[in-house]
Design a binder for these strands. Structure first.
Length: 766
DNA sequence: AGTCCACCGTTTTTT
DNA sequence: ACGGTGGACT
């Protein structure tokens, strides 16, 4: 273990050692003090990673190893960057100025503003948001005559994004890879998209990194400058980096090779957007001589929770492997509970929360973690009904709201008149009679002259080419922008924004709107202008907006949190409810279909992330029936339920609920011994794996329940009044028949329209 | 030019 | 179920 020779003098003894070192365990201490060379800090969930990380930064600064400006620290979210800044300031007792701490994208943007012209951009380039990207891609597809039915802009754009994630410019995309996109025209479209971005003086998120990489590769003097500057690199959440980020890092790290990457391969959950677990698995090869430090002592969860999580994640292959341990009482068992449907599930969770609340537990220490946002609704409804304070974490973000985006589009055109996407967005908002016809004319002229739309409009209104009405309206728009650009020189940017929104009639448009959400939109506009006050100028504000799409919500108070598993990464709660653990939902069927075993393992990691969010108490629930895309689907418990080690789990099942499915399937949700199995003896051989049983007997139910069965011919007719049995809804009587569609009054779930193929005569059931 | 209706697709999401 | 989108209609 090396200690610095400088500032602090010789190795401090126990008493006088700096406060940020005290209380660290041996591994953490090693992670803090191993400053030179490549270090991989494998930090399991709840092992005090952030603590070690911030201490390391404090150590670098306090020992005089590095000046703030010589440290490059990368996080994944702005929130994480902010927290790190605050915590290091807390350790040092003062705030640190001038260091390079931020997200990959904000740091890359900072570089790129400096070297913009090397990438063919002007320094005031716009950063496109996802909506702009999509609109731009749509325009490209139209221009190139691509059938958008076969190749929707979404799909092409996502292919382009994956290429960018891999650090591939159009020239570098391999033929094999390109062939699969848009009938082999993928690269062509990618190139056209890039060309258009350049015209707009814009780039998308992926470009921020990609342009940097290209500059680093082609301009050794730039890279050398960065190498001189940055002596120490620190990267958080390394398991979620993509190839482009890896290349970017490696190029910068080549200088001093002092790179410390922190991550947990078991928590890699962003493969679907290009993250490569491989980056962390390969670290030691990528950075020869790397020291690997494992943080394995968990300070967060009970041994029970930790044991369950470890047992589950052990089913994954290709892990670096860690053995997390913790001390203390085993704690409460994990309660696994099966419910009739999603509504019952929400009711159950609500009841448990109320019970905990009565027992003195704080709502702020409880969270419901879900696989998809679609599942949130059920909980929201229920909590609203019983008046349980809650908040949805995530959800539509401030800068994504349409009124905010419109307002920003106005400001973007003022700041950067070549921003055609922004111009098109607001040219007819409020309605000015500038419809598609005029816009088409304008676009054509712009293309012919190779000029931005606003400049083209300025020229066009001097001619007689437009219809008088359109000409009048467009003149108005052009003159307004000229005036606002003038005003931008003199007015503070907040006043400029007010002027623009008022004079454009945009504010008035919402004042006139009688829709229920209009007042809220006006409030958001006010909030937007208020928020601008925190920035020095319009440019700085727009830069922030481009990079920070996060919510402004800081809702305090005692509330239960409802969020997706993805949103929960990095958080912890006393009590966690993991709901919707059903095959098809979680693990998500689409993940399995698209990426097979890889997808399954990522889903399992997601389960692991969920489990490890809990400090003391954990509930896992699943429903037998789930309303999905409008129709009902029968569900069976997630295989992950079975993968929780039995000794940590306590199953509570509603008696008889799963009679049908459970009996056919083997009569167990995994936890019952043969003698206590309430559903009777198993009908499948005990040696058969769950996956096999499943493949044999449940395939049709799992992949596409309804569709598979619906396509079968109806089996014989049912008579009105006949008693029938349905695997999802139970017993009932036929009310109406229309071919193979029947209406049945079910004893427990009311009238439903069902397919005859789903029904059997009641006397043949069981 | 603007409004209405049928149709489609529907995991996760930061920057 | 539901919301967004594109095409047809007024």
């Amino acid at each position: 273990m090396s200690t610095s020779p400088s500032a602090q003098g010789p190795r401090p003894d126990e008493v006088s050692e700096p406060p940020y070192l005290s209380g660290l365990n041996a591994a953490q201490r090693e992670a803090v003090e191993t400053l030179d060379g490549p270090v991989l800090m494998l930090a399991g969930a709840g092992t005090g990673k952030t603590r070690a990380l911030t201490a390391r930064l404090a150590h670098l600064l306090l020992t005089g190893r590095a000046m703030p400006g010589q440290i490059l620290a990368v996080t994944f979210t702005n929130k994480a960057a902010r927290e790190m800044k605050e915590r290091v300031a807390g350790l040092l007792g003062r705030s640190v100025e001038g260091w390079w701490l931020g997200t990959f994208h904000s740091l890359a943007a900072r570089f790129l503003r400096r070297y913009a012209e090397m990438a063919g951009l002007q320094p005031n380039f716009t950063i496109l948001d996802p909506d702009d990207q999509l609109r731009l891609m749509k325009q490209i597809l139209v221009a190139e005559g691509i059938d958008d039915k076969a190749w929707p802009a979404r799909a092409v754009l996502s292919a382009v994004e994956r290429w960018k994630d891999k650090g591939l410019t159009p020239e570098r995309v391999s033929a094999g890879e390109a062939g699969a996109v848009a009938n082999g025209r993928g690269v062509e479209l990618y190139a056209a998209y890039q060309a258009r971005l350049q015209q707009l003086n814009a780039c998308d998120f992926g470009d921020l990194l990609l342009h940097c990489i290209e500059i680093f590769r082609s301009r050794p003097e730039v890279l050398a400058e960065l190498h001189r500057q940055f002596r120490y690199l620190l990267v958080d959440e390394y398991q979620d980096t993509n190839v482009a980020q890896y290349l970017w890092l490696r190029l910068i790290a080549q200088g001093h090779k002092n790179i410390c990457c922190v991550g947990d391969d078991d928590q890699s959950i962003y493969g679907w957007r290009g993250a490569e677990v491989g980056n962390i698995l390969r670290f030691e090869q990528d950075f020869p001589g790397a020291k690997v430090i494992r943080l394995e002592r968990n300070y967060r969860s009970t041994p029970t929770i930790l044991g369950a999580a470890s047992g589950l994640i052990a089913k994954n292959e290709g892990r670096l492997g860690k053995t997390l341990w913790t001390e203390g009482d085993a704690g409460e068992h994990i309660r696994v509970r099966g419910l009739w449907d999603g509504e019952a599930e929400a009711r159950f969770v609500g009841d448990e929360i109320e019970a905990l609340q009565r027992a003195g537990e704080s709502l702020g220490e409880m969270a419901i973690l879900l696989r998809t946002t679609a599942m949130m609704r059920e909980f929201e409804d229920r909590f609203n009904a019983i008046g349980l304070p809650h908040r949805i974490v995530g959800g539509p973000r401030f800068y994504e709201r349409l009124e905010v985006r419109d307002a920003l589009a106005y400001l973007r055109v003022v700041a950067q008149p070549a921003d055609d996407l922004a111009f098109e967005r607001i040219v007819n908002k409020p309605k000015r009679g500038l419809g598609e016809a005029t816009l088409k004319q304008l676009r054509q002229a712009a293309r012919a002259q190779g000029l931005p739309l606003l400049e083209t409009a300025r020229r066009l209104i001097a001619t007689d080419e437009l219809k008088p009405k359109a000409r009048k309206a467009l003149t108005d728009v052009v003159e307004s922008f000229l005036r606002w650009r003038q005003a931008a020189e003199e007015l503070p940017h907040t006043e400029l924004a007010e002027t623009v929104l008022e004079e454009s009639g945009y504010i008035e448009m919402w004042r006139q709107d009688t829709a229920i959400e209009a007042p809220g939109r006006l409030e958001n506009l006010v909030a937007l202008v208020d928020g601008m006050a925190d920035f020095e100028n319009l440019q700085g504000f727009l830069e922030h907006v481009g990079l920070v799409m996060e919510n402004l919500q800081e809702t305090g108070g005692e509330q239960v949190s409802i969020m997706t598993l993805h949103a929960a990464k990095g958080l912890e709660f006393d009590t966690v409810f993991l709901a919707g653990w059903e095959e098809g939902l979680f693990p998500n069927q689409r993940a399995l279909d698209e990426t097979g075993l890889r997808g399954l393992e990522e889903e399992r990691r997601l389960a692991y992330v969920g489990l490890t969010r809990a400090r003391r108490r954990l509930f896992v629930t699943f429903a037998a029936n789930r309303r999905l895309h409008g129709s009902w689907a029968a569900a069976i418990p997630s295989r992950f339920v079975d993968e929780l080690p039995p000794e940590h789990v306590e199953v509570e099942s509603e008696q008889g609920l799963y009679g049908q499915a459970a009996a056919a399937w083997g009569g167990s949700f995994g936890r019952f011994g043969a003698e206590e199995d309430p559903f009777g003896p198993r009908r499948v051989s005990p040696g058969m794996s769950r996956a096999q049983r499943y493949a044999n007997e449940f395939r049709p139910f799992i992949d596409g329940t309804a569709t598979v069965v619906e396509s079968l011919p109806a089996e014989g007719g049912f008579a009105i009044g006949e008693r029938v049995f349905h695997t999802k809804f139970g017993y009932g009587s036929v009310v109406r028949t229309e071919g193979e569609k029947l209406t049945v009054a079910f004893d427990h779930s009311g009238e439903k329209r069902v397919m005859a193929a789903f029904l059997v005569p009641a006397d043949q059931a069981g």
